[in-house]
Design a protein around this nucleic acid. Structure first.
Length: 229
DNA sequence: GCCCAGGGGGCTC
DNA sequence: GAGCCCCATGGG
């Protein structure tokens, strides 16, 4: 079997098992795209439960629009998003995105997502506070674009399965999924959410062995027992 | 009380 | 381009 075929089979099998084990994750199923983008920025390096409190505060304060985010002082915004950590930095990031959206797309996400996906990704990466994972989360979860999102859990899980992405960069992991899977936004959405579900449960950095992991027989079992991360 | 968890920016060499 | 530090909270 060719390497490509073996990779493809493995990635499909992982998806199949995660779905069978955890079921559908219902990530951002019917949210407003702008709210999804705000969530994607706020969830950087923090848990979703912390983000939910912050989003709720923003909603109550009527701040879930680009114009409102531009108007509020960064300090006041930081207070409202206190629960999700790095609040001063994230307040600046939210305002930077709102500013950019106004200038480039007249606050229209519809106009923004009408852009060519790869070109839009490059543009998003130029916005302060938006790196590769956040840009891809925006494209997939707010724009419904078939872009695979890579996070620390994804890297760790792939590493443990022994699949070789051909490098350690974000793009290596992303290309691994995208060259092997059909460009299906709904599936990419579900797959990433399932990897996070597994990561939160067993594939922690310092958890050497996934005794209860549904992928345990296809992970490098012995190497984890020795404490490799 | 302490250790751990998730992304991105900015600086240095 | 790699390595390092900073940004701060919440959960176990």
């Amino acid at each position: 079997m060719s390497r490509l075929t073996a990779e493809k089979q493995s990635l499909l099998e992982i998806y199949r098992r995660l779905f069978a084990h955890f079921g559908p994750q219902h990530w951002w199923p019917a949210e407003e795209p702008f709210e999804v983008i705000v969530g994607a920025i706020l969830t950087q390096s923090t848990t979703w439960t912390s983000v939910e409190k912050a989003i709720s505060n923003l909603k109550k304060a009527g701040l879930l629009s680009p114009a409102a985010l531009r108007s509020i002082p960064a300090g006041k915004l930081a207070e409202l998003i206190h629960s999700c950590g790095y609040f001063n930095a994230k307040a600046v990031k939210l305002k930077a995105f709102a500013e950019w959206l106004g200038v480039q797309y007249h606050d229209s996400l519809q106009e923004m997502f009408a852009r060519d996906t790869l070109e839009l990704r490059d543009e998003l990466l130029q916005v302060h506070g938006i790196g590769e994972e956040t840009a891809d989360s925006i494209l997939l979860y707010a724009g419904n674009k078939p872009v695979f999102v890579i996070d620390a859990y994804t890297r760790r899980i792939i590493e443990r399965t022994g699949i070789n992405p051909g490098g350690q960069k974000y793009r290596h992991y992303q290309e691994l999924f995208m060259r092997n899977l059909p460009p299906d936004a709904a599936m990419f959405n579900e797959y990433h959410a399932l990897l996070v579900a597994l990561g939160k449960n067993v594939c922690r950095k310092r958890n050497p062995l996934c005794d209860h992991c549904c992928l345990r027989d296809i992970c490098g079992y012995a190497s984890f027992k020795r404490g490799r991360t």
